[in-house]
Simulated scan of single mutants.
Amino acid sequence: MTQGSAARPPTDSSMPPAVRETYGPTDLGSLPLFGGGFINFGHWQGIDLDRPLGEGDRVRSQQAMYHHVLATLAPTEGQRALEVGCGLGAGAAVAVEEYGFAHITGMDIHPEQLARAERRHRGLLARSPERLRFARGAAESMPFGDAEFDCLYSIEAAQHFQDLGAFASEAARVLRPGGRAVVTSFFVPDADPARVDRLAGLLDTFATGLDVAHSVPALVARLEGAGLTGVRATSIGASVWPGWDRWLAPLWEPGTWPRNFLRAFDEGSLDYYTVTAHRPPS
């Protein structure tokens, strides 16, 4: 098991330019495309896709992604948890208010996102300072002590990580013995090197470097290599991509790049996964 000291917070120069630009000037969580302060594609299971979708459906889909992950982490009562890539903090607030965590630390690499999170949740931070905090840090270099958390989760942030091995080592380090981790995001389903060029041709976010075409076998291998056990990857793409595409249909024409996420899923170039792992008891 890799051990080490807490890292220093990242500098602006360590942030990938596409991440800095995408999450800086614009509050994506205020846009109808996302809405509700969440920024994820959504977990659409249980939402009727055969009728026109409204903004309420979109917000519920994003909340449902957090419900899916936090339920996977159970039991959560009285636990100390780290969210890696907390964005605007909407999911961290759900975790505090609905899942009985003793404490949530929301970590993000982007200072403007963290400033927005603190503004949005000023009331909760004032009422429960012992249960919620926000901190700046990179997935590959976390500013926390060894074994500081009972569990760790990350929702739709891993596609921005630059080094899966460093993330896995840090996740193993900050988890206590017996701790649990859940990572959910979109990944290449296999090790076929042709997938990288294919995704760059289909999707602008991969072409610009905002998203990195990590494979799910690579993430599993890195987590296992860091000493985590019981690593399991489960596809949830069928609950993500059709709903996302249905939501986009009134906004984007077929064949435009945002509609190509479903195309990439259908052809096997991209999928969405929940990946679970444990740090062995000492």
Rank of each mutant, 00 (worst) to 15 (best):
Q3W: 14
Q3L: 14
G4S: 10
G4M: 10
S5T: 12
S5R: 11
A6N: 02
A7I: 11
A7C: 15
R8Q: 15
R8E: 15
P9D: 07
P9F: 08
T11R: 13
T11V: 10
D12A: 14
D12V: 11
S13L: 13
S13F: 09
S13T: 11
S14C: 12
M15F: 12
M15V: 14
P17N: 12
E21D: 14
E21I: 10
E21F: 15
T22Q: 05
G24D: 00
G24E: 00
G24R: 02
T26D: 10
D27N: 07
S30L: 10
L31V: 10
P32M: 04
L33F: 04
F34Y: 09
F34T: 00
G35N: 02
F38E: 00
F38M: 03
I39P: 00
I39Q: 00
N40K: 06
N40Q: 11
F41E: 08
F41H: 07
G42E: 05
W44K: 02
Q45D: 11
Q45V: 08
G46V: 12
G46I: 14
L49N: 10
D50C: 15
D50T: 15
D50L: 13
R51S: 06
P52M: 10
L53F: 03
L53C: 06
G54K: 06
E55K: 08
G56C: 12
G56K: 12
D57L: 00
R58D: 04
R58A: 05
S61A: 04
Q62M: 13
Q63S: 12
Q63C: 15
Q63R: 15
A64S: 08
A64V: 03
A64E: 04
A64W: 01
A64R: 01
M65T: 06
Y66N: 05
H67V: 13
H67I: 12
H68P: 07
V69N: 01
V69F: 04
L70P: 03
L70G: 05
A71E: 10
A71D: 12
A71N: 13
A74Y: 14
A74K: 15
A74E: 13
A74L: 12
P75D: 05
E77W: 04
E77T: 09
G78I: 05
Q79W: 08
L82M: 08
E83Y: 03
E83N: 04
E83C: 02
E83A: 02
E83D: 07
C86F: 07
C86P: 03
C86G: 04
G87D: 11
G87N: 09
L88F: 10
A92Y: 08
A92S: 12
A92D: 05
A93N: 00
V94L: 15
V94H: 14
